Amino acid sequence: MDSLFKVEVISQTPEPQRSIYAAMHQDYAEGFVWDDRDRFPSEERCGEIIVKSLLAGNRGHYGPLEHPQITVNCGFFPHSTMQQIRTHRVGVSFDVQSFRYTGKRIIDVVEGTRDIEEVFYLRPLGSYTDRQGKKYDYTEELRQQDVEWCLTACKRYQERINQGFAEEHARGLIPFDVRQHWVMSANVRSFMHLLDLRWKADAQLEAQHLCELLWEPFQGWVPAIAEWYETSRLKKARLAP
């Protein structure tokens, strides 16, 4: 995995499994469930009930899972990964770094104050296979050619900015996989939807790496649901709930 890829939690609904339990309980409770909040089961027990009553046996009643929300900061991923993730935005909100306002780091590369691979992503050396099964090798020589191409593009970007070009015009000259940061919020259901689609064996490598980093905070946040998901759905390419 690329050493710069990172995911950090900004905020999350406390006791998310109790929130889901409350929503589920209100579906069939005669009374106003808020009045019974002091008698709700523990967070751990609520998780067990959710798995048994909502998830086990593919019952498919995912509505209560939409109440708790987690917000994360995803950093240093290539632009292409952001596009892949943002495509599946059902129940997910994004605020993505704009290259209309954040072009200084492109110029930093030219001035030698920032490493080029901190700004642009290139895949690691190794053997790869395309979607048709054709194999190829990404060698040190080829990768260095790509590093040089990124540097050339940075110089052209700087030149156009110095000529008075707007950032949104000049950014069209930089390589596609410039690294990009974004803030993303998802509820429990949409989080699993994203993992279903982007942690499959045929998903693009960088998207799979993002899912690996997202998985750890998800496990810590809703442990009972994560345990069920790991057993029932993880990397099984099932239709997203």
Rank of each mutant, 00 (worst) to 15 (best):
T152C: 14
D95A: 15
K135Q: 12
P78F: 02
C46Y: 11
G126C: 00
V96R: 06
F99H: 12
D196W: 03
E216Q: 11
H169F: 15
P14F: 07
D95P: 13
R39E: 07
L122Q: 02
E140V: 06
F76D: 12
I174G: 02
W182C: 12
P14T: 04
R59A: 13
Q84K: 06
F94M: 10
F191H: 06
F32I: 14
G57L: 05
W228S: 07
T87D: 00
R18Q: 11
I49R: 06
R59G: 09
P124R: 01
V183K: 01
L125F: 10
Q144Y: 11
L122T: 03
I161G: 05
V188A: 11
Q84M: 09
I85D: 08
S42A: 08
P217M: 05
Y101H: 07
P217Q: 04
Q132I: 09
S42M: 10
T139S: 01
R238E: 02
D137R: 14
G126M: 02
Y229C: 09
S3R: 00
Y121H: 10
T152H: 14
D137Q: 14
E212R: 13
R179E: 05
W221V: 04
C154V: 01
Q144R: 08
D137F: 13
D130G: 07
E15D: 11
D95K: 15
H88T: 04
H25A: 14
I107S: 05
W149K: 15
Y28N: 06
